[in-house]
Design a protein around this nucleic acid. Sequence first.
DNA 1: TTCCAGGTTGTTG
DNA 2: CAACAACATGGA
Length: 305
Amino acid sequence: MRICKENKHGILIKTPELFDFKTNLNYLQRNPNECMYEVGEDKIIRVIEINQLRTLVCISEADNEYLAVEFLAGARLESMEDKEAIVRYVEEWFDFETDLIPFYKMGSKDPLLEQAIERFYGLRIIGLHDLFEALCWGVLGQQINLTFAYTLKRQFVEKFGETLEYKGKKYWIFPSFDKISGLSPEDMSDIKMTKKKREYVIDIAKLMAKGDLTKEKLLHFDDLKQAERELTRIRGIGPWTANYVLMRCLRYPDAFPIDDAGLINAIKLVTGMERKPTKEEIREWASAWKNWESYATFYLWRMLY
DNA sequence: TTCCAGGTTGTTG
DNA sequence: CAACAACATGGA
């Protein structure tokens, strides 16, 4: 663990090489309808759940080489154990463990990645810590435009999530699988997602409530394909969603949602192609990205905004 | 109005 | 196995 210092306001966490806070903040700011955190000029505020405790934190940059985590409200995390958990959460969220040098070395000579790397230098794959949230977000976002996906997420979170309040503002906690597992699709009828999606989300919640689907279990596989197969067995989770979750939540470096509409559009944009690239063409380009497929995808997505 | 969105399932040939 | 309709709604 990259400890870190403490002061009376909170914790300071050392940032890694090739990390640009502003660039990552810009990513977090990409959609004004995001409801899971609030991004300001130079800080981000959100609820973090640690050992069943909820705390509202503000994360900002300090001295250009630290992230400062300041506690605003909620549970006071004062034991060493809790503080270490916060540090791990933040490190994991911003993917501090990954050494980006090989990616940049490879990508700077790659016709598809070259521009994105220059433009988003220091960007990390921002994680989705909560597996249930990652799965729901994947299912919710299937086959609809991103703007609408954010609307659906907001409706879902505001109906079934909980909040911490601070200075008159509400900060949301994603609905728990325990709560959702007890619902029927009719209970969610005022959320504008298809009945099928409502069923999928509830079924996934039930699996998780039973303990049959956990991060630990999915991290246990050493091969992406095995984890993908485990996920795609679940109704509502196809190859795209599985790879999306393996990328954003479980951090498989070779997770690759190859059918993604955004990826296709990003490739069209970067190459200037008029038609959609075929899957085979994408595979051909991606053959140079071995074990960096997830980063390549994430950077290419970024080109679209 | 039409087309397409960070797809998946279930059916049909 | 490939092709295709159905799903539901919003944004451009």
